[in-house]
Simulated scan of single mutants.
Amino acid sequence: MARAGDDPVGSMGSDTPIAVLSKRPKLLYEYFKQNFAQVTNPPIDPIREELVMSLVSMIGPRPNLLGRQAGTHKRLEVSQPILTDEDLAKIRSVEELLDGSFRTATLDATWPAEEGAEGLEGAP
């Protein structure tokens, strides 16, 4: 693997084939058993697995649950980590709505495309 630069091929843990693909006789219960990799493969899907996972993200300070101020922090909840321009506009305007509890700033991280990668070097 190190000489050829190949990726490792194999499983994490047991290399025993699943019962239905094995050439050796297996006990009945082994046909109904799942390994960890079989349970999470394909990757976890929040649409089909909505009972056990969520894409909801919180924006704002995480309160100290043991402190006196535990329930007084204001946080924004977004339904998914990908924000649209409309979502960003709402977040920018929330300072006015929440008595200044949230302060926002927009950082420009763009440069002219014709300058290519070299254009990034001149950024402050």
Rank of each mutant, 00 (worst) to 15 (best):
Leu120Gln: 12
Pro17Ser: 13
Leu51Phe: 05
Ile44Ala: 11
Arg48Asp: 00
Ala37Pro: 04
Leu55Ser: 14
Ala4Ile: 02
Ala19Asn: 04
Asp108Gly: 14
Ser14Glu: 09
Ala89Cys: 10
Asp45Lys: 14
Ala113Ser: 09
Ala123Glu: 06
Ile91Leu: 08
Leu83Pro: 00
Asn64Leu: 09
Asp6Cys: 15
Thr110Leu: 07
Gly119Asn: 07
Gln80Ser: 13
Leu120Thr: 11
Asp45Gln: 02
Pro17Trp: 06
Gly60Leu: 01
Lys26Gly: 04
Ile82Lys: 05
Pro46Asp: 06
Pro112Phe: 10
Ala105Phe: 06
Ala89Gly: 12
Asp108Thr: 14
Pro8Cys: 08
Val39Cys: 05
Ser54Gln: 07
Ser22Ile: 12
Ala113Thr: 06
Thr16His: 11
Gly67Val: 04
Ala117Met: 09
Pro8Ala: 08
Met58Ser: 06
Ser22Tyr: 02
Gln38Asp: 07
Pro61Ile: 12
Thr110Lys: 00
Gly119Cys: 05
Ala117His: 14
Pro43Ala: 08
Leu97Lys: 13
Ala123Gly: 04
Val94Cys: 07
Ala117Cys: 09
Val39Lys: 03
Arg92Phe: 03
Ile91Gln: 01
Ser14Leu: 00
Asp87Glu: 12
Leu66Cys: 14
Ile18Cys: 04
Arg24Ile: 14
Gln38Pro: 03
Ala2Ile: 07
Ala89Tyr: 11
Lys33Gly: 05
Lys33Asn: 13
Gly5Trp: 14
Asp87Val: 13
Gly60Val: 03
Gly119Gln: 12
Glu95Gln: 13
Lys23Met: 03
Leu97Asn: 12
Thr40Val: 11
Gly116Phe: 02
Glu118Cys: 02
Gly119Arg: 02
